[in-house]
Amino acid sequence: MIDFAVFSITIIAVWSVLAISLHLQFGLTGLVNFGQVLPFAVGAYGTAFAAAHGLPAWAGAGIGVTLAPLLGLLVILPASRLAQDYWALVTLGAGEIFRLTMLNVPVIAGGDEGTSVYRFQNADLAMVLALTLLLVTLLFARRVGASPLGRMLRVLREDEVLAATLGRNPFRLQRMVTAASWVMAAAAGVLYAHVTGYISPSSFTVLETFVIWTAVVLGGPSTITGVLLGTVIVQLTSVSTRFVAQWSGLPSDLVANLRLGAYGLVLILVFLYRPQGLIPERKLRYDADRL
């Protein structure tokens, strides 16, 4: 039971980092990244590449965390100066292309069969590392969100032209947000690889992107507490799938499908009945009368 709790906390922490990364991109800046799984996969595959080629684990982590923001800047290049429809399409396509590359080029990290990587033998250590990473990202995101930078990112979310006429370069800010949040997601990917000990393309489909989106939309994309709450809810249903299947006697395949269906339903219902999510953005009040 304790083992399960430790594992669950580790997994929730990893996915919380992904959710905070999406919070920075979508919740604050309004960037519709439908390829959020890409930086996560890049982190994981950096690790897998190192393992498959006999490089040390730190080198794999380094590759993943450096490559992700560079790739991010490359991916958003065609989408900058275009509407968010195109942004969504480009990021979605990039995520799928990365997965297909890993699937079809076995030299990188085993292709369809995947690669085994070093797995943390000590589950507690894994949990502590995951929580540390979560804490760092959380503090970073909080600092950004509550700063003048966060304010300008929100302006970008509302109206890019306004930001530009006020003398800001929207694309510089978008690049900055993308680089920073993709580093986070890649770090989460590195950790995820070492927690599960095995990496294959099927863990990084576009559906994973929407598991992150469900958590973020459900909790409230514009607040950190919101995305954390959403992730806890979504990931608890995810890690408990096995138990639900055992307990109900239904095939686990069916339970997994029902879970995915429930995520879809959540996305729909939240937008219909509570578009700001469970925890809406709080109003920042200032004393205007002070002299």
């Binding site: 989106w213 879809g264 996305l267």
Partner: peptide, 22 residues
């Protein structure tokens, strides 16, 4: 917003996909 509608359309997609899978 159009972004919101795109996200909801993914919700519908997940629901339909899981129904077919189930």
């Amino acid at each position: 917003t159009p972004e919101g509608k795109m996200i909801v359309s993914w919700g519908v997609a997940l629901l339909l996909r899981s129904t077919m899978g189930a």
